[in-house]
Structures are given as structure tokens and as C-alpha cells.
Design a protein around this nucleic acid. Structure first.
Length: 423
RNA sequence: GGUGGGUUGCCCGAGCGGCCAAUGGGAGCGGACUGUAAAUCCGCCGGCUCUGCCUUCAGUGGUUCAAAUCCACUACCCACCA
């Protein structure tokens, strides 16, 4: 089983770089190995970019290895310069601590913490905080050559563009220290991460060799990009988050369903846990009958289920089907309708209160930023009430249009929906 | 330390006293075509109590009837010279 893991990852195009491939192969075949993947708390939730890497960690576990999920309670306070052209602004200690807790909870749902190759959760603050500056400089710092540190892409790029603080410059040392510490504590000899982490990971590999005279391995995963060259997992309104309060399951599902055809195959390779055969069939369907969007749907379903659960996926898909179906909204029964609408951005207005204009309503749901933008949409013919185009910037729905006496469905453009509930 | 150049709307980048909410490109949004896709074409693209008003061109103060455009100082960046 383990022998095919790297081949599988290769097939998925999930390998950017590794330390010596043969040695890594031998190492993995030698038994159940500990490996680690770290996330710095730079936001209150993980996003799709993180998920891509996390998925690989999970594949390792399914192949019998022991994953260590590390949350960077310490490194998150310092800031990784990798891939950034300017200094990060530091977040408050309490904020980072809060984010650590949230991210930890998300990670817990994604790995198996029971069984013989149970996952382990770690926080680098645990071993970093107790170490004094002097001890750190003598025991760890002594093994680093500033010349090499300067040569790292993450640092040299910053020297070109406005400089780097000593704080961020030290980041690679901290991450290397993590790897060393996990090597000591858990015999962890493989670190994986996004391809921008190569420099940091290798810093740890070197440190382990120097201090422990042991060999350690590295594997990085390509950063995903979309066919149009933009960053994967980002929309105009920001990243796609795993936290349902930040990105609703409905929006999450729709994100995948609406993916560019050209991206779907790679997304399935990267994220899906289906067999190669099943995936090949989906690729085939994508080629021969793209209009059916079978592959899109499979992708959206599998990932929404993985992150938000089966029942949520069913709800979301039913909602989408109801709202995008050719049937009249008025024909939907109250339960289906109210279920579907609960997935959308929404607002409430009091019963008996005067009903605001369409423009005011859609701004209230948060679907449109400003009234000017909303008015523009009306003027351009992209405004709908209950799937009927409306005309006139002053248009205000009447109670006659209420669906089941309670709801309005607002639509902007072809596929952006919002709900208003009265009462 | 010296000298010169720069800082413009989400991003890049014109403008260099009034005709400037500010050319152009990208992103984004709406429309047509489609498949809740892509490409293409058309339109929009600071906000509002919208024939007008308000807030924007690094910050502060000044000159002027009038400044993104001129002057002074401050901050940051870049280049060359030490």
C-alpha cells in the first residue's frame, strides 16, 4: 500500500519537490512513519488552499502513516515572509490564540485521532515559549549560517523589495526548530507543506542532520492555480473558507459547481478520495459531455460532504435545485422553499412594516455592497424578484408577491440569490 | 550624509492650476451567446437624501476666485553619488 503512495500523489500532480525520491520511497516503505504539516494561524479559519495540503496529509494517514497536525501558535506570532513582498502586520497575541483554537478544531475533524496510526495535534508554542532567548541563540541559532538564510528565496525577494525585519528573518529558524523538536518527540522525519514552504522545510532538514546526525525528508505540494492564471480558492469577495460562518455551505458548493471546466480535472485529482477508475470516468464525462457538469457536481458534493457533512450537502443541493429549477418558485412547498432560502444571504423585515425598495432590500441582505451598485443592476436589467425581472429603481415589492406569505427571493444577475423574510 | 525621482480610485498606470470623480489596461459587476462553464461582443464600474450634493489623487499646512496639479514641512519608497 505504502509503496504506491508516492505514485498516487504523482498521479494527482500533488508533488512539487521532494528530497531524494528513492530515499523517501524507502523511508515510507519501511513502516508507519510520522510526518508533519504545519498551519500558521493567520486567519480564524482554514481555507481551500490549506485544504489542498491537508488532503495530502490525510492521504498519508490513509496509507498507514502517522500524521502530526501542527498549529503555529508561536510561528503565527512572528510571521512567515514566504511569498510575501512586504512585512506582515503583527496580530495581537489574544487574537492569534483564539485562531489557534479554531484552526485546531477544524483540523481535528479532518484526521483520525484513534487507532494504531492515530493523528497527533501539536502547537509549537509548547516548546518555543519555555526556551530562553539565550538558549535558543546558543543551541539553535549557532547551527544557522546567515549567508544561507539570506540566500533563501523568501528572504532575498524581500531584500529586493523594501527589506525584512529581524522578526520575519528569524522565521525559518523557528520552523526548523519545530521540525527538530517533532523529530525528537515523535521521531518525525518527513515534513510536507505548500511549495512555498520548501526553504523553511529544508532548513529543518539541515538542522536535524546537524544536531541529531539523522536524515529527514521533505515533500512539497504545488500551489494550485486556475486555468485563467488567478489564485485558486479566491473569489472577488475573498477566500473560500472552511468555516460555515465565513463561507456558507451553499456558497461552498456553488464555488465548485461553477468551476471553470478546465480546472475541474485537477481539482478532482487534488481533493477527491475516489478511486482512480471513478475519477477517470468523471474526466471522460467532462470531455464528452461537459454541459451535464457531472464532474463538477461530483466534486462539489464530495467536498461539501467532507467539510460540512452529508445532511448539509443534501440541503444545499436541494436548495440549489429548487432555486435554479425551471419550475415556478410559487409552486415550491413551504418546507422546500424555506429550507432553500435558509442557505442564502438573507435579511428580515418586520411584519406590517412598510416594505423597502428592492434596492434597499438587496443591500440589506449583503449581496450587493452599495445602493449605487444595486441601482445600477436594476438599470442594467439584472434585478429579479421571485425570478421575475423588475423595472425601475424605486420598485418596491408588495405583500401580494410574498411566497407563502413570508418570503421574497431576490436575484442579481444570473445566479446570485438572496432571501427576505417578512415577520 | 548629498542630489535627483516618486507616493493617484480594488491593482497597474496617465494626468501636472479650471473642461477631473480624474485617460487607458486588468480585476469586478450587468447584458447577449451558453451549460448556474470558458471565450467573445456590448454596457457599467467612489458614495448619497442623485438634473444636485458629499468624500477621494501619501499626511499636514499654505498660495489662488479655483489645486491631484503650485509652495512648505512630515512620512515612506526608488535611483545615483559619498
Amino acid at each position: 500500500m505504502t509503496s504506491s503512495l508516492l505514485d498516487d500523489l504523482q498521479w494527482r500532480k500533488s508533488i512539487a519537490q521532494t528530497t531524494d525520491r528513492k530515499e523517501l520511497e524507502t523511508f515510507l516503505n519501511g513502516g508507519s512513519r510520522s510526518l508533519y504539516l504545519g498551519f500558521d494561524p493567520t486567519a480564524p479559519s482554514l481555507h481551500l488552499g490549506n485544504l489542498a495540503v491537508l488532503t495530502v496529509l490525510r492521504r498519508f494517514q490513509l496509507a498507514g502513516h502517522k500524521p502530526i497536525a501542527l498549529v503555529g501558535g508561536a510561528t503565527g506570532l512572528v510571521g512567515d515572509p514566504s511569498g510575501r513582498s512586504s512585512e506582515r502586520s503583527l496580530n495581537e497575541v489574544e487574537v492569534v490564540a483564539d485562531w489557534v483554537g479554531r484552526i485546531r478544531a477544524q483540523l481535528e475533524g479532518f484526521l483520525d485521532f484513534t487507532g494504531k496510526n492515530a493523528a497527533v495535534m501539536a502547537n509549537n508554542l509548547d516548546w518555543t515559549a519555555p526556551v530562553s532567548a539565550i538558549t535558543f541563540l546558543r543551541d539553535i541559532g549557532k547551527h544557522f549560517s546567515v549567508n544561507q538564510m539570506l540566500a533563501k528565496e523568501s528572504v532575498s525577494a524581500r531584500l529586493e523589495s523594501g527589506g525584512i525585519s529581524y522578526t520575519e528573518f528569524s522565521y525559518q529558524v523557528l520552523q526548523a526548530f519545530d521540525y527538530l523538536e517533532l523529530n525528537r518527540r515523535h521521531d518525525c522525519a518527513l515534513q510536507i507543506g505548500g511549495s512555498d514552504q520548501w526553504g523553511n522545510i529544508v532548513a529543518g532538514v539541515d538542522l536535524i542532520r546537524r544536531v541529531e546526525a539523522k536524515s529527514a525528508h521533505a515533500l512539497t505540494i504545488p500551489l494550485m492555480t486556475k486555468a485563467d492564471g488567478t489564485k485558486f480558492g479566491k473569489t472577488a469577495s475573498g477566500a473560500i473558507w472552511l468555516d460555515p460562518k465565513m463561507t456558507s455551505p451553499y456558497a461552498f458548493f456553488q464555488f465548485f459547481l461553477n468551476s471553470d471546466d478546465r480546472d475541474v480535472e485537477q481539482l478532482l485529482r487534488s481533493f477527491s478520495f475516489k478511486s482512480h477508475e471513478e475519477l477517470e470516468q468523471l474526466f471522460e464525462s467532462l470531455r464528452t459531455n461537459p454541459g451535464a457538469r457531472e464532474a463538477h457536481r461530483a466534486l462539489a458534493r464530495e467536498l461539501t460532504t467532507l467539510i460540512h457533512g452529508e445532511s448539509e450537502t443534501v440541503k444545499v443541493e436541494t436548495a440549489a435545485k429548487a432555486l435554479f429549477g425551471q419550475g415556478e418558485l410559487a409552486d415550491l412547498d413551504i418546507d422546500t422553499l424555506s429550507g432553500a432560502l435558509s442557505e442564502l444571504p438573507r435579511t428580515n423585515i418586520g411584519k406590517g412594516a412598510p416594505i423597502p425598495t428592492w434596492v434597499d432590500l438587496i443591500v440589506a441582505t449583503g449581496l450587493v455592497e452599495s445602493k449605487s451598485a444595486a441601482r445600477r443592476i436594476v438599470k442594467e436589467g439584472g434585478a429579479y424578484l421571485n425570478n421575475v425581472k423588475i423595472v425601475g429603481e424605486d420598485f418596491a415589492p408588495t405583500t401580494d408577491s410574498l411566497l407563502h406569505g413570508r418570503f421574497f427571493v431576490l436575484r442579481k444577475g444570473k445566479r446570485d440569490l438572496a432571501a427576505v423574510e417578512v415577520g
